[in-house]
Nucleic acid binder design. Structure first.
Lengths: 222, 222
DNA sequence: GCAATAAACATACAATCTGTATGTAAATGA
DNA sequence: TCATTTACATACAGATTGTATGTTTATTGC
């Protein structure tokens, strides 16, 4: 099913015996602190994993392939991560962090609750338009780690914007009182679906219009 | 990681040599047409698979376990289905059909578009409250088969209600014109999230209230 | 009614994959 | 400097998937 012409997946390309490895700086770059080594292999693994998980999905990507791409061995992988899912978790954390950063950075002042929400939504769509993000965060993530853990990750990385926005709108009278948790949840789902559709080539304007209409229906521009 | 004290997973419990197998009716039940045999093993497989997929998820359920539960061999499985995913597909088709039937049966007259939608939503929640349905159709389904194929399945089994409802509302003037596809999609996502939350123990009334509020905002009761 | 064929499995096998156990070299701390 | 961690590298055990190949039971053409 999966052809793999590479016979030597179990060992890295050329044993970097530290004696022969010298940085282009001329200085002997082989003496690295443990922290440096760890950080470097960790990020190499996460980077390679991200690429492959995006390309072929979590289930279809094997650890031998990941370590080959990262130029390390499976020993390194299992030294840094409990298992394959744990590597995936780390990958998702970074991705969620990136999304949160993107949104936080792009957040601007808004005159009304409606405007704030609409801008937030657009910002979210922009952040999620980075290739692979939708697959990682909205497709494989929930399936592999479960919705509960995905919610945790979102919360850790600061995906509280929506809830806070709604709370503020309610407080300010723009939104009639209702169960905050539930409304946050279903709105978030709508945003996610829109992001997914857009990422898969659907007309972004249509989805943005639909989202905007939904928000207009909920929020009085008070 | 997964203990399995059964050593003989590769063959069924007791070779039903057809000579010794007699139905409790007294008559010799061993002469069965091919269609009967096929139907019987197919349904046994799907039934066992459904139970296990719900219990442990798609990825954590192996085909040896499935065939053991269904009292057949892996040979039978791979005779009837192309692969594990294909069995999963068949399972989901049945489940989607059941949901559609449930909803269709419960559909009643409604005075307004809003009422029709609200009732439809409640009906959907009721249908999705059957244990395991949410996991199959909303979690593992999209992850294993992809959203595209899930959409196909929904369409095959008649999950067009929502789109038609919106189309009707627009036509009747209760809903201002907008991209139908997009609106259908995000509303459907909101419904799904609500169903998922409810299935996982969240207060159903909260989610129903939130959904209703969303619909009220969109639909003028004209 | 019988031979030929096809359907419905049953069994064995090859290729992988995951996680663990164990061995080794490089860094770190006393 | 020496003991101890840390950071891997390698080997291995168990399990899984899909396929190839028998074997038995129904169908079908004559």
């Amino acid at each position: 099913m999966q052809e793999n012409s590479d016979k030597s997946l179990e060992r890295p390309a050329a044993k970097p015996s530290a004696k022969t490895l010298r940085g282009p700086t001329g200085g002997n770059a082989q003496r690295r602190s443990n922290k440096q080594r760890s950080e470097s292999t960790r990020s190499a693994l996460i980077s390679a994993a991200r690429r492959l998980f995006v390309e072929k999905g979590y289930a279809e990507t094997g650890t031998p392939e990941i370590v080959a791409a990262a130029q390390v061995t499976r020993g390194a992988l299992y030294h840094h991560f409990a298992d394959k899912a744990d590597l995936f978790r780390a990958t998702l954390r970074e991705e969620a962090r990136a999304v949160a950063d993107h949104i936080e950075q792009e957040t601007e002042e808004a005159r009304s609750a409606l405007e704030a929400m609409t801008r937030g939504a657009d910002s979210y769509f922009a952040a999620m338009s980075v290739p692979g993000r939708v697959r990682l965060l909205l497709l494989d993530g929930p399936a592999v780690l479960g919705h509960a853990e995905m919610a945790e990750i979102d919360q850790e990385t600061g995906g509280e914007e929506l809830r806070q926005g709604l709370a503020y709108a309610m407080e300010k009278g723009a939104l009639a009182p209702l169960p905050l948790e539930a409304m946050t949840s279903i709105l978030s789902a709508a945003f996610d679906r829109a992001a997914l559709a857009i990422a898969q080539g659907a007309p972004a304007e249509d989805y943005k219009a639909a989202i905007r209409r939904m928000l207009e229906g909920l929020l009085k521009r008070a």
